[in-house]
Design a protein around this nucleic acid. Structure first.
Length: 223
DNA sequence: AGGAAGATCCGCT
DNA sequence: GCGGATCTTCCTG
């Protein structure tokens, strides 16, 4: 049998939107052009967007609230600094709008969005998000009782909650049928403030450690 | 072939 | 606030 997909109610603070379970069809995915801009612009643009994860049985939706830009061959903090091109960083050299996933400290995965275009290896690290749908699934994956706030506040935690691993390498964020896509809803960033800060955990990068390439979204609602 | 370091997280103090 | 976990990746010799 082939029942109509159940409608899921999503609570967004004062807002409420509904989604079809089969593919979150109420969320249009962002097109390639969105990612083919300068990395800081894309980073800022990602704030407030929805990241939709379908893996196995479940769908999980989170709202992006914390990102960091990594500016490629001229950024000492970037994995592709001075043109480093290795098996690990290969996805960064590819087309914009795809995932770059890597393992850090042998334990945690980090999820990035590749920007600009082929041959220009820049990317944005997704550091934090707010649960929109599927908090229970994420809580289970994170192991134990965690507050909504603790579910996704860190790049490793976010990957754990979304079950993102290196098998998601190069996944296309513009394609709804891929396991990971990024989309829009009627959320308004206008009512929020965007804070720029220094990036985290890159003290080795000298002066670049001071560059204000971390973007954090603050909302008056319940984001 | 070997070693050092890492875009982190968690638990303990 | 601090240190350990844990292992891949990359650079050096």
């Amino acid at each position: 049998m082939n029942p109509a997909p159940p409608v899921i109610q999503i609570e967004l603070g004062m807002n409420e939107i509904s989604l079809a379970a089969a593919g979150a069809s109420a969320i249009p995915s962002l097109g390639r052009e969105f990612y083919q801009r300068t990395t800081p612009k894309v980073a800022e643009g990602l704030l407030g967007k929805l990241l939709v994860r379908s893996a196995g049985s479940g769908i999980v939706v989170v709202r992006i609230v914390d990102v960091e830009a990594y500016l490629g061959v001229e950024d000492p903090a970037c994995h592709t600094y001075r043109g480093r091109r290795t098996q690990r960083t290969e996805a960064m050299w590819g087309p914009a709008g795809h995932a770059y996933v890597y393992l850090i400290y042998g334990i945690h995965h980090c999820l990035n969005v590749v920007t600009v275009g082929v041959g220009i290896p820049e990317a944005i690290l997704i550091r934090g998000a707010a649960p929109v749908f599927g908090a229970e699934t994420m809580r289970q994956r994170r192991g134990g009782a965690k507050s909504d706030r603790e579910l996704l506040n860190g790049p490793g935690k976010l990957c754990q909650a979304l079950a993102v691993t290196c098998s998601d390498q190069s996944s296309d964020f513009t394609i709804r049928e891929s396991g990971l896509f990024i989309g829009n809803d009627d959320f308004s960033v206008e009512r929020c403030s965007i804070e720029r800060r220094k990036r985290v955990g890159i003290d080795y990068a000298g002066e670049a450690a001071e560059w204000p390439l971390r973007y954090v979204l603050h909302s008056n609602d319940n984001v």
